[in-house]
């Protein structure tokens, strides 16, 4: 096992810069959440990290070795991405069984028994063709590939898209259980933030082509506060702090602050101070600019 380290990743599509010098270190044994708005470049970054797309600049290393075109490094990685049932040729006319056969060829630690167990838990017949699967079932196959690959670093891109709430809860349990049993590293990119927040040891927010923050989830939430009250009082209490997402309504104001080391809110009984959920914090930091 080792760390996956990205340095200075730049990715441009024609003139548009999608990733602007991203530095990111993924440490072994943790479950990471990668969160960002649509189109911010999550999938692009993840595919660059697993050598599926070339970066314009920058390096990706696993355990000190270049990932690009390096079988030794790639053997430790798995990027299970969204399958698309609409393509009528190739893997999507295959049966799930056959798709797993290919996975077993390329993932050195592939666990066929585990894959079959997961398919049973999800209630999917392996003889079904991929082109005939519903959106939810496609997600379940993606999840199975990721978990059964038993890769040291496993990346799941939007694994819960299309799953209903019960299936989502099943997924979080499967993930925690597999992580507890094997200590593998997982990176999960998702839009459905709040449910998944408890599962992530660290969260990574991606914004404007770069990493806005990467922090232990609990520590991050411990230093976030939502302050509301009369506008002047709120300003007094939050003076000198990093403020985000100010909202005004009449004489009142609401603002989100992130406290740095050693900072605190001034005492004031006239304002209401509340903690934020991860979802609210994400919207405050990465939502629409005023």
């Amino acid at each position: 096992m080792g760390n996956l380290v990205c340095k200075g990743i730049v990715k441009k599509y024609k003139d548009k810069v999608v990733l602007n010098g991203v530095d990111l270190t993924i440490e072994e044994g943790k479950i990471y959440g990668l969160i960002g708005r649509n189109g911010v470049g999550k999938t692009t970054l993840l595919s660059i990290m697993t050598a599926q797309n070339p970066a314009n600049e920058g390096t990706v290393q696993y355990d000190g070795e270049q990932v690009w075109e390096n079988r030794k490094a790639l053997d430790h990685l798995c990027f299970s991405r969204e399958l698309n049932a609409l393509t009528t040729l190739g893997p999507n006319t295959q049966k799930i069984k056959e798709y797993f056969k290919i996975a077993s060829i390329y993932y050195p630690n592939w666990d066929q028994a585990y894959a079959e167990e997961l398919m049973k838990q999800f209630g999917i017949d392996q003889k079904k063709r991929i082109s005939k699967l519903s959106k939810g079932m496609l997600s379940m196959v993606t999840i199975t590939i990721g978990l059964a690959s038993k890769a040291d670093i496993t990346i799941l891109d939007e694994p819960v898209a299309g799953l209903d709430v019960v299936a989502r809860e099943d997924f979080y349990r499967m993930l925690i259980e597999e992580h507890a049993n094997s200590g593998r590293t997982f990176i999960v990119s998702t839009h459905i933030i709040e449910e998944a927040a408890d599962v992530f040891e660290e969260v990574i927010f991606l914004k404007d082509g770069n990493v806005l923050l990467k922090e232990n989830t609990v520590d991050l939430l411990d230093r976030a506060r939502h302050v509301t009250g009369v506008a002047e009082d709120v300003d007094l209490v939050t003076e000198g702090l990093h403020k985000y997402h100010e909202e005004k309504m009449g004489r009142s104001k609401g603002v989100t602050v992130l406290l740095e080391e050693g900072q605190s809110l001034k005492e004031n009984a006239q304002v209401t101070v509340q903690p934020l959920s991860l979802q609210n914090l994400f919207v405050a930091l990465c939502g629409r600019e005023e």
Partner: peptide
């Protein structure tokens, strides 16, 4: 592309 997505070396 399918093989590459499974981590196969591009060559």
């Amino acid at each position: 592309p399918e093989q590459i997505s499974f981590g196969c070396v591009r060559l």
